[in-house]
Structures are given as C-alpha cells and as structure tokens.
Simulated scan of single mutants.
Amino acid sequence: MPHLAHVALVVRDYEEALAFYVGKLGFELVEDSCQPEQDKRWVTIRPPGASGDAATILLARAATAEQQLVVGDQAGGRVFLFLATDDFDRDFTAYTAAGVEWARPPAVQPYGKVAVFLDLYGNRWDLIEFAPGHPGAA
C-alpha cells in the first residue's frame, strides 16, 4: 500500500540544519550518508518518539540558484509543516528555552492547542496538540 516516505525540506547547509533540528528540536538523525557521485548527502530526520515507519524529513541542500530562492519559503509564507505533540506545554517550554522563535503565540482552537514557530530559515511550523477526539490526536 502506498504511504508517504519522505518530505523534502530544502536547506542552505546540512550542518546548520542538523544543529537546529537535532540540536534545538531534539529530532532523531535517521540517516546521513554521502553520495559523492552527486556531490550531496542523503540526510533524513524524524521527530523524537516517531515510529520507525513514519515519514521522515529529507534535508535537501539547495544546489542551484533557483533552489536557494525557496530556502525558508517553501510554502509561500504559509505554515509548511505540522508537528504534533502529546504535551504542548512541555514542548513549547523546551523549544522556547532552546531559542526557537515564535511567529504566533499559543492559542486554543476547536481542533487543539497550537502555536506557530519559525525554523532557522523562516519556514513556518505548527506545534500542535490535537484535541481529544480529533483525527490527529494520539
């Protein structure tokens, strides 16, 4: 059965992206392998606690001027990725302490508790704890 395996996130530099996602957000480094014939690396990460069969984020280094233009704006200023949590307050506090920048403060919505943060490039992410009974709830 088809399933989502990876989502590509265009980054400026592998090491600075790993420092943010693994260092600040606590994501797990799944794979980091060199592909010398293409002068790139295959770098995948996933949120802490995600199951082994969950889709990963592929950190794709921008290799052209056109790709450089979308670093930090892959969704045209909209929220690009949605990071679900089982404890919003825990993660909001940890991310704030790690220096994560918040574009929108926490709010309680019918679908759950949510805030918007910016990654190191300016992509917008939702940190969300879905309300009980919501299809996204754990």
Rank of each mutant, 00 (worst) to 15 (best):
I45Q: 05
G76Q: 01
A55L: 04
A65Q: 06
A19D: 13
Q38G: 00
G49R: 05
R12E: 10
Q35E: 13
V71F: 06
T56E: 11
G76F: 08
L81C: 11
D53C: 05
V10C: 14
D39C: 04
G52E: 10
R78F: 00
V30C: 10
Q35R: 09
F27C: 05
C34G: 12
F80Y: 15
E66G: 07
F20T: 00
L81E: 08
L9H: 15
R41W: 02
G77L: 00
R61D: 05
A63E: 09
V71E: 06
A65K: 08
S51T: 07
F82G: 08
G23M: 11
L81F: 15
V10Y: 14
R46D: 05
R78M: 01
K40F: 04
A50C: 03
V43R: 07
E16R: 13
V11I: 12
V43S: 03
A60Y: 12
A19W: 09
T64Y: 04
E28R: 03
L59D: 14
I45F: 04
G49H: 10
F27N: 07
D53L: 06
Q38A: 05
G52A: 04
K24M: 09
L83Y: 01
A54M: 05
E31H: 12
E15M: 04
E28F: 03
H6L: 15
T64E: 09
E28M: 02
D32E: 12
P47M: 10
G23A: 10
L25W: 00
R61S: 10
G77I: 00
L18A: 06
P47K: 02
L59E: 13
I57A: 04
E31Q: 10
A8I: 02
A8W: 02
V71A: 06
S33L: 14
G77F: 00
E16N: 13
G76P: 01
L83E: 07
G72I: 01
D73H: 11
T56F: 04
A50Q: 11
D53N: 08
A84D: 05
D13E: 13
E16W: 08
A75I: 02
H6I: 15
L9Y: 15
D13F: 09
S51H: 05
G23C: 10
T56Y: 03
D13L: 07
F80N: 13
E28C: 06
R46Q: 10
L83W: 02
D13N: 11
E37I: 03
V43K: 04
P36I: 02
R12H: 09
L25D: 09
R61K: 11
A50K: 06
A8V: 04
V10R: 14
G72L: 14
A75N: 03
E15F: 07
Q35I: 15
F20I: 01
I45D: 06
L9F: 14
A8Q: 11
V70K: 08
G77E: 01
G26C: 05
E31S: 14
P48K: 05
Y14W: 02
S33Y: 11
D13K: 09
L25Y: 00
S51L: 05
L25G: 14
L83G: 07
P48Y: 04
G77T: 00
L18Y: 12
Q38H: 11
R41Q: 06
R61Y: 10
L25H: 03
F27M: 04
T64N: 02
R12N: 10
E66I: 06
E66V: 10
P47R: 09
H6P: 01
L83F: 02
A19I: 06
A84L: 13
